[in-house]
Amino acid sequence: MRALAAALLALMPMADAAAAEPATLAGHVEFLATLDPPRNFDHPGSLDRAAAYIEEQLERAGWTTREQPFEVRGNTYRNIVARRGPADAPRVIVGAHYDVHGDLPGADDNASGVAVLIELARMLADYEPAVGLELVAFTLEEQPAFSLGAMGSAHHADQLVAAGVEVRAMLALEMLGYFRDLPGTQRFPVPVLGWWYPTTGNFVGLIGRWRDRPLMQQVQAGMRAGGDVPVHYLASPLDFPGLDNSDHRNYWPHGWPAAMVTDTAYYRNPNYHTRFDIPGTLDYQRMAALVPALAAAVRSLTQTEDASPP
């Protein structure tokens, strides 16, 4: 499973652990978005190639990984889990799904989130958290798994419950590559939100339930301290459109704080779930600036044994 990924990795320069390089992020996105056939539910072989690539990258960054396999309709799919920190401490989860919707490239959705996850691992290569920290590449976030209840993140959450793990927080990295500096490029499910939030699509959004507000405030503060990409959060009732459209949804039923980190997907990116969601449409400079911001937020969540956000 790892042979192709290992060969490709041998040709790629190692990134400086102190910085995220736009070209390195672009390389991750290019690999995932050009897999043929696309990395979706109907092509488990391509999902395996994507998983092998991600696993090799995380290991090269100094993390110990394991595969978390499960079966759906006779096929085996796998999450890739990298963990460090005390095994008996509360845990923080940061994840991104690597599958794609249909036979599409899926550069922003969600090769961008996976690329940021990989470079986050590299930036945290020498970091020793006070609690458990898991970086997870999820399979099967997209349809039909989404509606079947067969999402990789649901399997991951269920296994945490079975193991008796206490989860402090979960962050889902979902579409993190599309930014625009023109006014009017940011839309909202409820137009009145334009009174409170920027209408220029150059920020990162933190999306969660009202009860996740303390988590999002802590993440926002950490990201603002660690980078220069604007960050705004939206805490909302559960019936808000798009609130649960990613992997964080599967941690809520267990009572755990969880939120999505996103460029807001179809409220900004017109290429969402189309053949135009290709690597050349993404802003790798801003993605690179986002990585240290997320690293600062992760450190703020994992540097003490206190199990609840302030």
Rank of each mutant, 00 (worst) to 15 (best):
P270A: 13
G242R: 01
D247M: 07
Y266R: 12
T264N: 02
D247N: 12
G255L: 04
A258H: 02
W252N: 06
W252I: 15
N269K: 14
N271C: 12
S246C: 09
H248D: 11
R268H: 13
N271K: 09
T262F: 01
W256L: 10
D244L: 15
D263V: 14
D244F: 12
N250A: 05
P257M: 10
A258Y: 00
R268F: 10
D244G: 15
N250R: 10
A259D: 05
D244P: 11
T264L: 00
P253H: 05
S246M: 09
P270V: 12
L243I: 15
P253E: 04
L243S: 13
G242Y: 00
M260W: 06
V261Q: 00
N250H: 13
R249Y: 11
H248Y: 06
Y251S: 03
Y251G: 00
G242V: 06
T264E: 03
Y267K: 07
Y266K: 10
D244E: 14
T264Q: 02
P253Q: 10
H248R: 07
N250D: 14
Y267H: 11
N245Q: 08
R249A: 15
D247A: 03
P257T: 14
L243D: 05
T264Y: 00
D244T: 15
N245A: 15
P270N: 12
N269E: 13
N250Y: 08
W256N: 03
A265H: 06
W256I: 04
T262W: 02
S246P: 09
N245V: 05
Y266N: 14
D247G: 05
A265F: 01
G255Y: 03
T264I: 05
Y267A: 09
L243Y: 06
S246W: 00
P270S: 12
A259W: 00
N271S: 15
H254C: 12
Y266C: 09
L243Q: 15
H254Y: 11
G242L: 01
P270Y: 02
N250S: 14
D244S: 15
N271L: 08
N271P: 03
P270M: 05
V261D: 00
